[in-house]
């Protein structure tokens, strides 16, 4: 029996394979390589085995303490972002007009921040939140709320969180809007006939039908906020002190600031594994959710 698989086809994916090799696998392996060695400059490297990993994961060591502190800040930042942006995005989506020119205008308005590059967003908010010339910071001070993000931890976090909300809530809102639009009218009519309250309509119809897009939205926002670098780098530079030094910023400090390539390598690997693990959990939840609903 002739075999229908044409093995020549494998050559066709060779270019793609090479690209992936050069821009993903080789750099990653370089990082792995660094993470098991120590260097004292002059391009001299010494084998360190899992030493950096042991130190990194030991909270009592200097490196470990620093790592867990920035990991905690990153996790905290992501948690706050998700806790605010997801409900807010849903609310925005539900308040959006359903048709006509008002819909077109609000779509443009909501999508606008998404189009602005990260460093521009950072610069905008760096200026906007300044207590001397920024409208946001100045106004707060003027109405009697002391606000200076360069020396106050709470203020610095507030700026970063508000900035991220401004930048990305629109994404959740757009995803939810698309999800809401796809719910057939019959569901709303049936709910009215069943005498359901507005809350019941939300909890029993809208939220279940949105669960899919929400899962994708949460995943995107988690990854993005957990790996955020540019904006805090531009706005606060990780300060005041280490108050907004997230994992990504700390990583760059160690790697480029102190040139501790081994430590930075080990940290990168652990960082990557955390992101991968979370993505895997999301993926599993999504796929099992789909299978339960499928073929019904």
């Amino acid at each position: 029996m002739d075999k229908p698989i044409n093995n020549a086809a494998w050559f066709l994916i060779l270019p793609a394979f090479l690209i992936v090799l050069f821009n993903a696998v080789i750099p990653l392996m370089t990082v792995v390589n660094y993470s098991v060695q120590d260097t004292f400059g002059n391009n001299q490297f010494f084998w360190n085995g899992l030493g950096w990993y042991q130190e990194l994961l030991d909270p009592s060591s200097e490196l470990g303490g620093r790592f867990f502190a920035s990991l905690g800040r990153s996790a905290m930042f992501s948690a706050i972002i998700l806790a605010i942006e997801v409900p807010l995005g849903i609310m925005v989506a539900m308040c959006m007009p359903r048709r006509g020119i008002a819909l077109a205008l609000s779509l443009v308005f909501i999508a606008m921040p998404l189009l602005i590059p990260w460093n521009v967003v950072g610069t905008m908010w760096q200026l906007y939140a300044r207590s001397d010339i920024g409208l946001f910071g100045w106004t707060l001070n003027a109405i009697g709320i002391p606000f200076n993000y360069t020396n106050d931890t709470l203020a610095a976090w507030t700026v970063l969180v508000v900035m991220d909300m401004w930048h990305w809530t629109g994404l959740i809102a757009l995803l939810c809007f698309a999800g809401l639009k796809s719910i057939p009218d019959a569901y709303y009519q049936a709910a009215r006939i069943d005498g359901a309250s507005r809350w019941a309509v939300f909890a029993r119809i809208e939220l279940p039908k949105l669960s899919h897009v929400l899962l994708i939205g949460v995943l995107l926002r988690f990854m993005d906020s957990f790996m955020i670098y540019t904006e805090p780098f531009v706005v606060t530079g990780g300060g005041p002190g280490n108050a907004t030094t997230f994992l990504s910023i700390d990583l760059v400090k160690i790697a480029l600031g102190q040139f501790d390539l081994g430590k930075a390598g080990a940290m990168s690997i652990v960082y990557t594994l955390i992101v991968l693990a979370v993505c895997w959990v999301f993926y599993t939840v999504m796929v099992t959710g789909q299978n339960k609903g499928g073929r019904g």
Partner: peptide, 20 residues
Amino acid sequence: PTEARNIAQVFQFPVIYDTM
């Protein structure tokens, strides 16, 4: 309004509350 009319309706495509 519909909810004040004591009517019930069955639609073309089944409307059920998925999570219940």
